[in-house]
Design a protein around this nucleic acid. Sequence first.
RNA 1: GGCGGGAUGGUGGAAUUGGUAGACACGCUGGAUUCAAAAUCCAGUUCUGGCAACAGAGUGGGGGUUCAAGUCCCCCUCCCGCUACCA
Length: 815
Amino acid sequence: MKHYDPKTLEAEAQQFWADERIFEVDEDPGRESYYCLCMFPYPSGKLHIGHVRNYTIGDVISRFKRMQGMNVLQPMGWDAFGMPAENAAIKNNVPPAAWTYQNIDYMRSQLKLLGFGYDWKRELATCKPEYYRWEQWLFTRLMKKGIAYRKTAPVNWCPVDQTVLANEQVIEGRCWRCDSEVERREIAQWFLKITDYADELLADLEQVDWPEQVKTMQRNWIGRSEGMEVEFEVPGRESLMVYTTRPDTLYGATFMAIAAEHPLALAAAAQNPQIAEFVESCRKTKTSEAALEKMEKLGMALGIDAVNPVNGESIPIWIANFVLMGYGTGAIMSVPAHDQRDWEFARKYGIDIRQVVEPLDASTVDLEQGAFVTKDGRSCNSDLLNGLEFGAAFDAIANKLEADGKGQRQVNYRLRDWGVSRQRYWGAPIPVINCDSCGMLPVPESDLPVVLPEDVEFEGIGSPIKRMDSFKKVNCPQCGGAAERETDTFDTFMESSWYQERFTCPDQGSAMLDQRADYWSPVDLYIGGIEHAILHLLYARFYHKLMRDEGLIASNEPFKRLLTQGMVLKDGSKMSKSKGNTIDPQDLIDRYGADTVRLFIMFASPPEQSLDWSDTGVEGAYRFLKRLWTAVQQHVAAGQAGSADTDGELNDAQQAMRRKLHETIRKVTDDYERRLTFNTAIAANMELLNSLVRFDDVSGSGHKIRQEVFDSMVLMLAPIIPHVCHRLWLDLGHDSLIIDHPWPQVDASALVQESIEMVIQVNGKLRGKIQVDVDADRGSCEAAALANEQAARFIGDSPIRKVIVVPGKLVNIVV
RNA sequence: GGCGGGAUGGUGGAAUUGGUAGACACGCUGGAUUCAAAAUCCAGUUCUGGCAACAGAGUGGGGGUUCAAGUCCCCCUCCCGCUACCA
């Protein structure tokens, strides 16, 4: 008997798939399409376990859908721009482009070794001009529509390296390379008006089949709120505009807080050295939300008052380090009694805390302990609002302020416009030319793409194209005079926001997309890490709508169904190069073969759950494959089933074997289709194999049943362990292709049972088991349970208070 | 700080709609096979007590609802992800 030899068998199967171009697919309007997409990788060097998990899930589903008769597209490509290439370039003295292309070549070979069924003719890399030119093209269209615009926004600035740092590059407030203290600096950047689409992004979440937790995170991130914009006059100066969701608490406003970069603060700083010093110190904070919220809240009184529009009261204006100029109006009103952050600030600086909302149940509130934040309250100390609950108070004050011209109702979003400028080299150039006389102009369509020079000296400090005249110096497309190119590049989320569409027509040279996109789109199932639940998925949804509004695509949403894979952790935290805790799957592939690696990672846990990596147990997966192989080979060696004695009734063991098989098919199909839990699908097949090994019926009927079980089992496992199943299918005597063989069907007649087991409980504790007819009624179940000896022991002479019968499950006797 | 998620034997996990907790594996223990080892096969394996039959306890901690709670509700602890320039 041949022994299980994964190396040879996997190479043969892969060769066959490649030679026959099995996974290359075309549009076929006559067939139902299924587009299965995994988040493409950043080419960081080699695959890590998280990739293997992600791409195995995608391949399993793709192969399953294909066996169900669908025209399945499963493409793969490279999210090839990004910071790690720049870091590697500095470290190894290779240009980012060369490093990236090397990594792509190696990682592609790894993906091929794992046997993933990709349509490689659609492969793309986002760092190629033929890809990013369309992103540049769309951006120029968006400039003309006013969706792309320029404004200032804060960045982390290293004063020594004279460069912008990513949040990741700021370690405890210091530059990761030179350890100098990082400052916040406002610079002009390009933005996309995602806020114009906020309502649609919110509403369309109803249309997608995504995990509820992801939809919740997106809703919270968008953060729609209904509030008011209110004007506070500042005598002798420009008034302050603030947004508040709690205009009902206006009578409790005891101070205003403004950003350090606010014009009012800057003006005061020019007069007062102490204020200037404070303003300066406010720049020593990171830009990240987490850092901003966790830092000590500091402030300084400006010595200027604003006038509360509802009661004419003068309240002090403070500069506060937690208010940022770039977000909202750069000013807020503060109500310490009813906002926890304001409360803490007021306590620290001895500012009045004035209660203007009381509990509905008329209990008292201890404002010494903290703010009373809820909207479930009634206004007090608020003049015309007194006694009103939130909704009524809101309307009353809104009407008054609108009548007085001091404010208006406004819907606001927590979501901010998408800043797409990066001051880095390894990204797609922003297609803009700045002319002193004509201003910022989009690069004309005929001049696209703006190609990023790849052959550069990369020193690390600053982007090389920022000092490269051959790149920078151009003639103005409008007046023809000397002008300069924009040297910032796009956020890499731009590339990953539309690749799913480009995969449908990657060879289209004269347009961003063509009609093929509407055949495949939207993606039927998108699979990727839960860490992308907000940013990437929100930007991709937004970008899809931009492409739709440009007439490029018909659908509203890019991803119909979403499977968020849990993270693969190592020692309890995210794997990353910087932590040096990445796991290379290559050793496992070399030692056991691709099928073992695929089987093990799918068996280890359900896809949505995070998985702390450990490779104990890989042996078990390998052992199962050997057992399966051996069992099939022994069956095949036993020869063809005799047909003479197969016509009669099946005996009990034979019926039980067939029932087990068809119960397994039913369960496994549901696991693949609805639950997406491959670990339980595998476990069910392990059980089935265990049952089959114990089924030692050597009759013709027995052999025939064994053939049926092996055929079905190999079909059910083929998506997970495709190489060995490809081979076993042939060994089982078939000359068809397993990859296109229909998925096994449940034979309902095999599931029929005459009697079932029911559990007897006494006071909810398991005390015995009985066999009853399938169609036994409640009364006979109850009678059988009460007649049971075991149960009787526990009932003793206690009176029976109640008997609960759950048909087909259990009888609970309450005494 | 905010938002989202998680915690079940020595380990990974199962229990799908409130109904038998621990399926299926890993590991471990014992046995068979072998000159020996590897591989393979068989048996056992939640904890406590007991030779056993069996009994009691048990799903991060505390409370609650229910005939019945890993599952539902309230409070708490710890861990993970995201937090707008990591991807």
